[in-house]
Write a protein that binds this DNA or RNA. Structure first.
Lengths: 234, 234
DNA sequence: AGCATACAAGAACATCTGTGCGGTGTCAAA
DNA sequence: TTTGACACCGCACAGATGTTCTTGTATGCT
């Protein structure tokens, strides 16, 4: 399943168009946007995309097409499309909640003290579980991943067994950010507020009744920044 | 702005249709579904809905209409429409993630120990803030509302200052459920696991290092069940 | 009564829009 | 060289779809 440049640009345009209008574009609109002069060529490419199941089409229905997000996700195009270029020009009239956006975040595994977390950005597509989230909660879905907390080991971060922690992948942290950090000496991953003080790192739990930790900087490696914690009880 | 039965059924149909197809219906489809024989009558009613800003319409564009969710929200129709009837019959082919759903939850105020929480279901429309959430996280958006946690008073429930607690309004709780409860004697609202034991209520904090409470049942009044906790750090 | 307004029908009309078909150029396999 | 798949172009056709016009029935107000 190899997408041509044109086909990719068609996908981008559709995502963008739907975001702006809340309904899909026509073949001619796609043609104009993607600089395809002939409607039949658009149809040709749409058929290809349909064969690849990246879009769903309804015969003889005007604007009868939609993106197949779960398939796009699998192919790794979803994020790219979800981040489609901002609304252009005339499109700020309907810029209310109805122009909703969402995206999926891979749940890459579990986090528990004593286990390192594995975050090869490469194997995102191999994630066994995906979380669907709203744009409204996150500025930018790039680099986000999620971990399920196992056990009570993160309780000093006010994170309980079963909670889902959403992180943004990064290896450096600003002071005060809550990060997932691997601590060499103690062989554990933990969620703490991060403060670099000289060549020492201070790790402050979210729950102030738990003690802080002081460690040599080189002993602490940041896995990602915690951007959200979600607890489902139902 | 008084909606006729027909106009309401049109809104319901549009919401339902979009949910199933990912694109809006035509005037004739609306007509058939709502038992309107004439396209002009559909147009007439759509114009009314457009005047009321409940929908957005694009002239001379096929299927060029969309629901204005923020307006529907304000009028209190959003939940009703978001819960639109399940896909009917033929519509289970495109039943993947692309048929996404979302809904808004009113943030009714703050929760802090020492303050009662005000939850008149009536004034949902008066909420100053709304939270947009995914259907995927909640079975049923009915009766949901949100509170912003103020202060450190809920820390024994592993809920921090600034967290958002999502509750389902109910006045009775099953054993083990985490509830928001008002405690008469102590004049405070708290989040705890609820256990009715005879005519005593046992309240267990989420964080096991905090002590349990035992109180006479009549002293505890449940405000709602906690269904989710969301912490945003970015 | 007289009149304005809301709601509804049906049919004709004018676009909008997807589809089909003939044709072109490239490239690799036969 | 021939063949066929692939990508592309224009164009005309037909069906899909929004709009407009005329007519009709209530309802409420003066």
């Amino acid at each position: 399943m190899n997408l041509s440049k044109r086909q990719k640009s068609i996908l981008v345009f559709i995502a963008d168009y739907v975001k702006d209008h809340n309904y899909p574009p026509t073949i001619r609109e796609i043609g104009t946007a993607c600089e395809i002069s002939s409607t039949s060529v658009v149809k040709y490419n749409l058929s290809k995309l349909e064969r690849d199941e990246l879009i769903v089409r309804h015969k003889e229905v005007s604007r009868g097409l939609s993106l197949n997000w779960s398939r796009l996700q699998a192919v790794g195009l979803a994020n790219e499309l979800a981040n489609a270029p901002a609304a252009n020009g005339n499109a700020n009239r309907n810029r209310d909640r109805s122009s909703r956006q969402f995206f999926q975040v891979p749940v890459l595994g579990r986090i528990a003290a004593g286990e390192p977390i594995q975050v090869e950005t490469a194997d995102r597509s191999a994630a066994d579980e995906w979380l669907e989230l709203n744009e409204s909660l996150f500025r930018n879905p790039a680099g986000l991943f999620a971990l399920r907390v196992q056990g009570e080991s993160m309780i000093d971060a006010s994170v309980l067994d079963g909670d889902i922690v959403i992180l943004r992948h990064q290896e450096r942290a600003e002071n005060g950010e809550m990060v997932a950090a691997w601590i060499d000496g103690q062989n554990e991953t933990t969620l703490k507020h991060f403060y670099l003080e000289g060549d020492q790192v201070r790790l402050r739990p979210a729950n102030p009744t738990y003690p802080e930790m002081f460690l040599p900087a080189k002993q602490v490696s940041v896995q990602g920044k915690v951007v959200s914690v979600i607890r489902q009880l139902e």
